[in-house]
Amino acid sequence: MTDLSKRSIVKMVALTAVAAAALVGCGKKEEAPKAEAPAAAKPEPLKIAFAYVGPVGDGGWTFAHDNGRKEIEKAFGDKVVTTFVEKVPESADAERVIRDMAAQGNKLIFGTTFGYMEPMLKVAADNKGVKFEHATGYKTAENMRTYDSRTYEGAYMAGVIAGKMTKTNTLGVVASIPIPEVVRNINSFTMGAQSVNPKIKTKVVWVNEWFNPPKETEAATSLINGGADVLMQNTDSSAVLQTAEKMGKRAFGWDSDMTAYGPKAHLGSAVINWGPYYVKAVGEALEGKWSTGSSWWGVKEGAIEMVNVAADVPEDTKKRIGEIQAGLKDGTFSIWKGPIVDQAGKEMLAKDAVADDKFLGGVMFYVKGVEGKIPGGK
């Protein structure tokens, strides 16, 4: 190798070293890769519990509430965890169950029958961090509110159908507990029937329980033997419809669609859809917007509907049911509009006056056409 070649190589090496040094001096160096930020922790799901007065398979009231619970799961997925306890009696045992629900970490608790009101108030006072929802009651607290459905709207529509379908002009109601809700439904059923058939009379048998199929069966049999050929109920099982089926009479489903329990007897089902309210309530809890108060939802809010009206019901009657539902939805029709008189003929609501919710909440009288007396009443 010549001296020139050696010098060229040495020069190239030197230039390379200078260039590298220049790069270092300018801060051109390789940076270490940044560590990724840790993923945000997933929020804990909202724990929700339901106390049911009957079994989930009652086909009526509790079944309807459980359908609403399932709507919550469908709407919110893994943001919620729901559980329930069925057949919780309206007694001191209710307080034990509800208190246990709070102790298990449930932050939203639904009590689904009138008799849970006082027990829930007690538990709510001791668990300020838990939200309580009580169905059909009227007492509230800072962390407890009430909700209800306007079941009298379904009863009235059932009455319209019954008034057209009866052959004896005698209707029967199997009633549960003598509270305004039930008395209001008996009256509304009678008023609906009288709107199409002024000759209607309504007989009532009280069983003093929400869910007791043998007692409900016995009461329905008694009514049929007493001349009633169309029955309605304000109890929670399908026993009344099944009894009508066996005895060749007609009846209605109540709270849920009961068509399958007595397809020949079934004239229609006055159903409650709790889903819309339950989804709203849970949404408010999740968003931190929940507050105390009272809600009473009906046809207008999608909570009450008459479904599966029997094929042999006259078309003009079916049309009338559609008109009533439309009127209740847009506010152009009122069921409790005067004049309304009691059994003795005393005016309870003046002509053209429309009952407000305060009036409706205190109905403890029978309208003209209902026979007998309210247990414990005058």
Rank of each mutant, 00 (worst) to 15 (best):
R99Y: 10
L108E: 04
G60N: 02
G111E: 02
P89M: 06
L46I: 05
V85W: 09
A75S: 07
E44R: 13
N127W: 04
A51T: 09
G60R: 01
A103H: 09
K47Q: 04
M120I: 11
G115A: 06
L46E: 00
M120H: 06
K74C: 04
A39S: 12
I98L: 08
P55Y: 12
E118S: 15
V85Q: 13
I72R: 03
I48V: 09
D100H: 13
D58S: 06
S91R: 09
R99K: 15
D58M: 01
V81E: 12
K79D: 03
G115D: 04
K128S: 11
G77E: 01
T113W: 15
G105V: 02
G60A: 05
H65K: 07
G77T: 02
G111N: 11
T83V: 11
G105N: 02
R96L: 15
V97I: 12
N67G: 13
K122S: 14
G115S: 06
A40R: 11
H65F: 04
F84N: 10
T83D: 10
V88N: 03
A41G: 10
L108P: 10
E71H: 13
K87H: 10
T83G: 07
A37R: 14
E118G: 11
P45M: 00
G54V: 08
N106Q: 02
A41F: 03
G60P: 00
Y52N: 12
A49L: 01
Y116G: 06
G77F: 02
I72F: 06
F63E: 10
P119G: 06
D100V: 09
L108R: 08
D93M: 14
K34V: 14
D78A: 01
L108T: 07
D66E: 14
K42T: 14
D100R: 15
G77N: 00
P89S: 04
D100I: 10
V81Y: 01
V81P: 07
N127Y: 03
F50N: 06
T112P: 13
L121K: 15
A102T: 04
W61L: 04
M101L: 09
G115I: 00
V85A: 11
T112C: 13
E73M: 05
I109F: 05
F50G: 03
M117T: 11
Q104E: 09
A40T: 13
F114M: 04
K128N: 07
I72P: 03
T112W: 05
G115Q: 02
F114W: 08
H65Q: 01
